[in-house]
């Protein structure tokens, strides 16, 4: 037992060869730091990953919103631009808008001839619903379904008398 302790105590005094220790130290100190490389590659791949995600989203938007195939995206020929159905739909939307504005304008012109107001009052049917337009409201107690709700101007005239 004492012999074993003696051997173990001798192990504490073991030293490496001086030349070998110096060479090893130099090798470690002069070798490139691997941690910097891993940080760079980590950042690079993260940026690439997010960049690819955003690019893919952009591509998806192009395909969905343009209703185009990938080949069409990179071709100068937009065959969809001459699609008759799409053109007709857009032209119809313009016609509807003209009719809406036309109705407003005709109504305003007719009121202009009847009043002494300097400029006509444009009908509000499209942008703003008329103030007293409906008899179907959520307050049935006060609603008279046989007589239409009077115009606000008429009410003010009546109240002024």
């Amino acid at each position: 037992m004492n012999k074993l302790e003696h051997i173990l105590n001798q192990l504490k005094n073991i030293q490496p060869d001086r030349t070998y220790a110096d060479r090893s130290l130099n090798t470690i100190v002069n070798s490139p730091r691997s941690s910097r490389v891993s940080w760079f590659s980590f950042t690079f791949f993260r940026v690439a990953e997010y960049g690819a995600a955003v690019a893919l989203v952009g591509l998806l938007f192009f395909v969905m919103m343009g209703n185009s195939s990938l080949v069409e995206l990179f071709s100068p020929i937009r065959s969809n631009s001459l699609n008759t159905g799409g053109l007709r739909a857009e032209a119809e939307a313009i016609d509807i808008q003209i009719k809406l504005l036309g109705i407003d304008y005709e109504e305003s012109s007719s009121t202009a001839s009847l009043t002494t107001v300097a400029a006509p009052s444009f009908a509000r049917k499209k942008t703003i619903r008329p103030i007293a337009a409906s008899v179907e409201t959520s307050t049935p107690m006060t609603v008279n379904t046989t007589t239409p709700n009077p115009d606000i101007d008429d009410v003010l005239d009546l109240l002024s008398e």
């Binding site: 103030i131 007293a132 409906s134 006060t142 008279n144 007589t147 709700n149 606000i152 009410v155 009546l158």
Partner: peptide, 15 residues
């Protein structure tokens, strides 16, 4: 949202 103005029967009542 546009609120609709309703005078109910009050105009008739006033007349």
């Amino acid at each position: 949202e546009v609120k609709i103005c309703d005078f109910g029967t009050k105009v008739e009542d006033l007349k």
